[in-house]
């Protein structure tokens, strides 16, 4: 499978990354190159193989429903690029 510029553009939108024309050109080529290498996986017959999403054989990791201290508001907002009162502030949604 290969990846064209249009696909890279769509993927960049999903990832919320803006690419200049030159950057898009370069990245598309590099990604195509990398994907061509990755495509060597397609020779393997993986039909009956179970996927591994967790390498450890652990399950049912749970905590008790016990309250813990929340952050003081100064710490919560300490790194905020924009804030108002107790709130984080973001630009308005324009689609």
């Amino acid at each position: 499978m290969s990846i064209d510029k249009k696909t890279v553009e769509d993927v960049a939108h999903l990832a919320r990354i803006e690419l200049e024309a030159k950057e898009l050109e370069k990245l598309s080529k590099q990604l195509e190159h990398i994907l061509a290498f990755i495509d060597k996986l397609s020779v393997l017959d993986t039909g009956n193989i179970a996927p591994t999403s967790h390498i450890l054989p652990i399950s049912n990791v749970l905590r008790k429903d016990e309250p813990r201290k929340s952050l003081p508001i100064e710490k919560t907002l300490m790194n905020a690029p924009d804030k108002q009162g107790n709130f984080f502030v973001v630009p308005k949604v324009i689609e």
């Binding site: 309250p67 813990r68 201290k69 929340s70 952050l71 508001i73 907002l77 107790n86 709130f87 984080f88």
Partner: peptide, 14 residues
């Protein structure tokens, strides 16, 4: 472990 209580000051249960 943050509380789920409703109606408290904004960003006080984070």
């Amino acid at each position: 472990g943050c509380s789920t209580e409703f109606g408290n000051a904004p960003n006080s249960q984070v």
